[in-house]
Design a protein around this nucleic acid. Structure first.
Lengths: 235, 235
DNA sequence: CAGCATTAGCTTACACCGTTAGCACTTCTG
DNA sequence: CAGAAGTGCTAACGGTGTAAGCTAATGCTG
């Protein structure tokens, strides 16, 4: 079966599936994750709920399709930010991507909550879920920059504290997903940087920073500088 | 009206209100935030939904009562951990409280998600909400330790980088909520430590650390050490 | 103690939600 | 052109929050 040309029917099917997805994303963006409902989505495109079930059998399936779509968009946005000045120092491209992530999160709070919070049980990103791959493409943006920093010799292969703690061997799992074989201290630096980046952005988006400050941007920028120093001190 | 002795009726009212709250918390703990529903709670205590509405007019009100209750429990738990060894160095009491927070979060994932994630719109903790005060008692645990560290001279009053950036004046808001008048660099150190603490725990509870490691505890302990060094270098 | 206001909890009702079963109609295919 | 596959519908069931109105018991008060 040498993948026949998509019949007129299949074409139309993909078209309405895309329309449904667009409606669902609109709902999410407008009224938050709880508004992302089968019936409301159906209404949006002029169908009934069982109608859209022909395209996304479950509510779960619809949500996961949205998650996948969002991850793709986000990854594309980060890639664009990273590659806006291809000749800039790699560390600057890293901060550009990180800023783009924060900017996207603040401009798409509902979407960020769906992807990086833990509200909707249907959004689960288990390894067997289709959204898992899309999520990994997002992570790949930062991993790619990490690998390039490593190639450029910006990251020391030795830990700051003399010896490698035994528990760093946990990073072996992560290492297998990488195209390049990076030493454990490099991966350790990366995870440290990532946790701080995520923590800051999530804290701000979720409003848990309001108690301390009105505008967290300077705090973010300060941390971004620290992160780069920590991640790639030899740049 | 010199607060009359609670009539028999009011006593009974408080009693069933407590029972409803207990049932709601049970539901939350057992089946997650989405299972925390008016009708299910009513079923749990052998009533109908409009029945519990006599006690908590809204679903929102019920959720907020649960949030308040959880904050109180959590705060009590952290205080207990902090005061388990009252004569220990203050830095150790800080790490004890931080460990207790992580331990509670991992053992009460649903509850942690409700308090520190952003899933349920009804759980909003705006300043006018009753849950706000309870949340602040939780924060007070760490703030109290901060103040004690300051009294002991463990925290330098000057920033590491010579001058105080202009944006640190944002911490003035935070300063007003404190009993002691701490210098801006001290508050800056505190916010830095808090964001990293939250980031690590949230990342772990929400499962966003799975891609990198199976057991994040060593990473947490490592960061805890760094945090104390950062927060109170002169201890 | 009698009367009465308050209150607890109920039933009913309405509007949403996800999901299933069955049916009519369109479109492709042999 | 008939049959098969697919599309979207209606109807229905069980779940959710919430408002209105009712009954009966409770507790206060004269």
């Amino acid at each position: 079966m040498p993948d026949q040309p998509p019949s007129r029917r299949e074409l139309r099917r993909e078209q309405t599936a895309a329309e449904i997805l667009r409606a669902a994303r609109h709902l999410l963006a407008e009224d938050g994750p709880t508004a992302l409902t089968l019936r409301a989505t159906a209404r949006e495109v002029g169908m009934t709920a069982p109608g859209v079930c022909r395209y996304f059998p479950d509510h779960r399936a619809l949500v996961q399709a949205v998650v996948t779509d969002l991850y793709r968009d986000l990854a594309a946005g980060l890639e664009a930010a990273r590659d806006a000045r291809p000749d800039a120092p790699t560390a600057d491209r890293f901060t550009a991507a990180a800023r783009a992530l924060r900017h996207w999160a603040l401009g798409h709070r509902s979407e960020f909550t769906l992807l990086f919070g833990k509200p909707v049980p249907d959004a689960g990103t288990a390894p067997e879920d289709p959204a898992h791959d899309a999520g990994w493409r997002f992570g790949q943006v930062f991993v790619g920059l990490l690998e390039q920093l490593w190639r450029e010799g910006a990251i020391p292969a030795e830990p700051a504290t003399g010896t490698v703690p035994a528990w760093w061997s946990q990073f072996d799992d992560l290492r297998e997903h990488l195209t390049e074989d990076l030493p454990l201290p490099v991966l350790h630096r990366f995870v440290q940087a990532w946790t701080r980046l995520y923590g800051l952005i999530a804290l701000e988006v979720f409003g848990h920073l309001d108690f301390a400050m009105a505008d967290p941007e300077p705090l973010f920028e300060e941390n971004l500088g620290q992160l780069v120093d920590l991640l790639a001190p030899d740049r």
